[in-house]
Design a protein around this nucleic acid. Structure first.
Lengths: 206, 206
DNA sequence: TTTATTTCTTGATATATGTCAAGAGGAACC
DNA sequence: GGTTCCTCTTGACATATATCAAGAAATAAA
């Protein structure tokens, strides 16, 4: 959950220090490719928007796009027989997609739904698949990117099996204080694996 | 936690149905490359062993190898100020390494320690880095492999935030019943995020 | 603004899970 | 075979967290 993060059968990356950056700067700084290559990639994206409540993708459908969040919040969630679980909330600076659907052509594992109006940069699947013809070494860079995402998720498992609810709350607050006044807290509670009431009580103490 | 699994700042893959397979069959079936390519890759591995209690790598050191477990069990764990957390137990059919150390040249995040005497097929880092010159498309195949690992880990986060201790116990038992009579149960408890006593009580009920 | 919804808080209580401690069983070692 | 060590179990109890319910606060809608 440090610099880069990815969660929710989708992947995303977020450097705190890059929150103000736009797509080209982001791609350049993360993948470390030349300006020429950055431009080739950026041209494949187009600006799109999502209104509050809209779904980026619904579980069980196909997800044939990947986006970068410029503004807004997107909640990644899934149903269980008894409740709805929020897996993660993606914030500006993150990439979002349903990774399984995008690269393995399965149906989407998650619901991705806009918590607020969102501005996105979006790339369609066909174009996404062209990148490795345009940029030398792209497969390796992408491998490294996903590996980083893997490591981040691994940390999250570790937090979940080793820390108390209060410690997890504090950790999230340190890593992402902005979330706490921009999205419904019940979703933060869910993604930390605790009830909204427990979350509220921890918050009152802090 | 279905077919393929990876945990612990290391990655691993395990198809139940392949448990009896050896390295060449495994590589061929997972990466789907030609027999010629499989042989090129397999030649880079050498057989090694690890005695019970030995470390494959210690946290804080560098891990410059990747292995496939032919026989034995390897525990992936890490210290916290108050306790020792088992992140995962790798079984025959899994690849093991400290992924961060292997591909980002960081120090290892995890301790990997043999729970039993182990037979491994091991590839050194320099040789591992040669594979993409030997096998066409290797970077992409590796990307897909790591992505699968990512999805598996994502499921694990979901289990951890959405299920009770008993449900997690049952899920692990269904997916990997063999573990329950081959390794100390306290480690299974830890990797499921519960105390050994809770684990024991759930077990007594089942 | 006023109203209607949604979200958050708080108390009372139930339940799940952790901790401590003692002992039992089993495996390893001598 | 006996000892030692490690692991597992079990009971008693403590604590963390969940659940239910009511109301307050905030937000969105009219």
């Amino acid at each position: 959950m440090k610099s880069l993060n990815l969660v929710g059968a989708f992947f995303c990356a977020n450097f705190e220090r890059y929150q103000e950056m736009k797509l080209p700067q982001y791609i350049q700084s993360y993948f470390g490719i030349s300006d020429t290559d950055v431009n080739k990639v950026v041209e494949l994206f187009e600006e799109t928007t999502l209104n509050k409540g809209d779904y980026y993708v619904k579980a069980g459908h196909y997800c044939n796009q990947l986006s970068f969040i410029q503004e807004g919040f997107i909640r990644v969630w899934s149903e269980t027989p008894t409740k709805e679980i929020t897996q993660w909330i993606s914030t500006p600076g993150y990439f979002i997609t349903d990774l399984s659907s995008l690269i393995f052509k399965t149906t989407a594992r998650w619901n991705l739904q806009a918590l607020t109006d969102c501005k996105l940069y979006t790339i369609k699947q066909e174009r996404y698949n062209q990148i490795n013809h345009l940029v030398d070494n792209w497969d390796e860079l992408e491998k490294l990117f996903i590996a980083k995402c893997f490591l981040t998720l691994e940390d999250r498992v570790f937090s979940q099996i080793s820390m108390t609810a209060e410690e997890r709350y504090q950790q999230l607050f340190e890593l992402n204080p902005g979330l706490f006044n921009q999205v419904p807290l019940q979703y933060l509670a869910s993604m930390l694996g605790m009830s909204p009431e427990t979350f509220s009580r921890i918050r009152a103490k802090s």
